[in-house]
């Protein structure tokens, strides 16, 4: 038991039960949030041995988002991690994530999976770029024939005849974005 306590556990709970009805709803909601944060921090907070350089797995309390990464900086209520095979960092709060220090075996598997994912992504991107380039060349090659059968569409500045391969300037007044292409 902490020596800083103003009352023992039973007295504290009795105090809450007896006085809770007299406080504003907003105050009680803030109190609940503070209690939840404190419980989460004490139950799942900073794991022992966590330091800069540790390899961790962090999963949010809903179990939906998860990250593997190396701790590159400690902050007051969390840490900053760098996922494997990534150029970005991720902020991890001990109040929102269950943080676990992983062993070398699990970390190596995470690195291998991330490397494989990055390689597959790069291959897919290169394949899509090649397909897009071929599609562009095809559109330009056939533009004269496509121009004979244009499609009439209504733009802000009136009707336009669009066809595949047409050189187009598009301007969006609401966002002031200019796009050019074919």
């Amino acid at each position: 038991m902490s020596t800083a306590r103003a009352m023992d556990d039973e007295t504290f709970l009795a105090f809450i039960r007896n006085s809770v009805a007299t406080y504003d709803l907003e105050t009680l909601e803030k109190a609940v949030k503070t209690l939840n944060d404190n419980i989460a921090s004490r139950r799942w907070g900073k794991p022992p041995g966590l330091e800069v350089g540790s390899h961790v797995a962090a999963v949010d309390f809903d179990g939906i988002f998860g990250w593997y990464g190396t701790v590159i900086r400690m902050t007051g209520q969390g840490c900053i991690i760098e996922p494997p095979s990534a150029k970005y960092t991720q902020r991890i709060s001990f109040k929102k994530y269950i943080v676990r220090v992983v062993d070398e075996f699990e970390w190596n598997r995470a690195c291998m999976a991330a490397g494989e994912h990055a390689r597959e992504f790069a291959e897919q991107k290169a394949r899509e770029d090649t397909e897009l380039e071929a599609d562009r060349e095809d559109a330009i090659k056939d533009r004269a024939r496509a121009a004979e059968d244009p499609k009439n569409m209504l733009a802000i500045n009136g009707g336009i005849n669009i066809y595949r391969g047409a050189f187009v300037h598009a301007f969006a007044p609401t966002t002031i974005l200019t796009t050019m292409g074919w």
Binding site: M153, L154, A155, I156, N157, I160, N161, I162, A166, F167, V168, H169, A170, F171, A172, P173, T174, T179, M180
Partner: peptide, 10 residues
């Protein structure tokens, strides 16, 4: 098209 001013380029 309804959100853009569109012009064709030579």
């Amino acid at each position: 098209t309804a959100k853009h001013e569109i012009g064709l380029l030579s």
